[in-house]
């Protein structure tokens, strides 16, 4: 049978190896390759499992506030304040929600928020599309310098503007003691019709559209505007959807400005309503956490639904920011 050469070194010039098989054994210390391989798979699986355990733990920590919000909203107040905390309500109090809809004028705030969101989104989309087109596809003197100025304005804290904008909006007659609902809407909508970040986002998108399309449109006798309308906008639709949703979310979360420019509670938006509503027990004088959390659930659910349906667009719109620093 075959002869096994057990040597540390083989001089291939001297040793004739015709018809012989060489078995190379690679060792590290006392461990052979098989051994090392096994160890590697074991440690790899171990680390993978550990990673999953850690990530799962962190993920649970991340969503704990939401879980707590939901179960607290279904608890009896005594249970919330008890020294023994429970991870599931012993008595499920659906009545908390019934009470919330009586105390918290959800429909009014919701309606205000939707009106403001829709109109500020439309305005923003129009200004953004026009400006992004000019910056991406048209050539004019000082274009790049102007765009740099635009980008630099993103650094200015909005609080700088709030003070004067408040005065400006008041001088337009939109804020004051005799404020009507339309005035309040205008005050909440118009100052937010420009977003430099969205212009930047859409400009990047427009720049990727090949110019051959523009030439083709020209040959077909289309002007710039109809080209923008018929070609560019459909091509950039995903970004426009992202902008719409992010803008909507922004309105849903806006708190400071609506609080400032509205003179009546029923003109305000959902965040103001939530923070402004009193969930205090009329007799005891302490906060009814069950009611409060039920209200936060009611405010959060629409956003969650939006997220479920438009997850891709939201994450893309937000994530786009980081691609180029």
């Amino acid at each position: 049978m075959e002869q096994i050469i057990k040597k540390e070194y083989i001089d291939f010039n001297k040793t004739k190896l015709d018809g012989q098989q060489i078995r190379l054994v690679i060792k590290e210390g006392n461990r052979s390759v098989e051994n090392l391989k096994k160890r590697e798979t074991v440690s790899k699986t171990f680390w993978l499992i550990l990673t999953y355990v850690v990530v799962t733990f962190l993920a649970l920590l991340m969503i704990l506030p939401f879980y707590w919000m939901i179960i607290t909203s279904l608890k009896l107040n005594d249970e919330i304040l008890a020294s023994q905390q429970t991870f599931f309500p012993t008595v499920v109090m659906w009545s908390n929600y019934v009470h919330v809809f009586q105390v918290f004028d959800f429909t009014t705030y919701m309606l205000n928020t939707i009106v403001v969101a829709v109109f500020s989104t439309i305005g923003t989309l129009i200004t953004t599309v026009l400006a992004a087109f000019a910056f991406a596809k048209l050539n004019f003197k000082g274009r790049d310098a102007l765009f740099m100025v635009f980008l630099m304005t993103m650094m200015i804290p909005g609080e700088m503007m709030v003070i004067s904008n408040y005065i400006t909006v008041a001088s337009f007659g939109w804020v004051g003691m005799e404020q009507s609902l339309t005035d309040a809407y205008l005050a909440m909508i118009v100052p937010f019709w420009v977003s430099v970040y969205y212009i930047y986002l859409l400009r990047q998108n427009f720049k990727q559209v090949p110019n051959e399309l523009y030439l083709a449109a020209k040959v077909d006798g289309k002007g710039d505007f109809s080209y923008l309308l018929r070609v560019m906008i459909p091509l950039a639709a995903p970004t426009l959807i992202s902008i719409t949703i992010l803008k909507f979310m922004g309105t849903w979360n806006s708190y400071v400005w609506p609080n400032l420019v509205t003179y009546k509670d029923e003109y305000r938006l959902i965040s103001n309503g939530l923070r402004g509503s009193s969930f205090t027990d009329p007799e005891g004088g302490y906060v009814q956490y069950g009611y409060q959390m039920a209200a936060t659930v009611v405010v959060t659910v629409p956003l969650f639904l939006l997220f479920v349906f438009f997850r891709k667009y939201i994450m893309r719109g937000v994530g786009r920011a980081g691609i180029k620093g």
């Binding site: 707590w68 919000m69 965040s271 936060t296 405010v299 959060t300 939201i314």
Partner: peptide, 26 residues
């Protein structure tokens, strides 16, 4: 899951945190 907190109302979740950190809280 890790993106979820982005899609929330800052005021609402702030209120949840104040419940979590209540003296009798979790």
């Amino acid at each position: 899951i890790f993106f979820l907190p982005y899609v929330t109302n800052a005021i609402a979740v702030g209120m949840v945190f104040s419940v979590l950190f209540d003296t009798n809280g979790l």
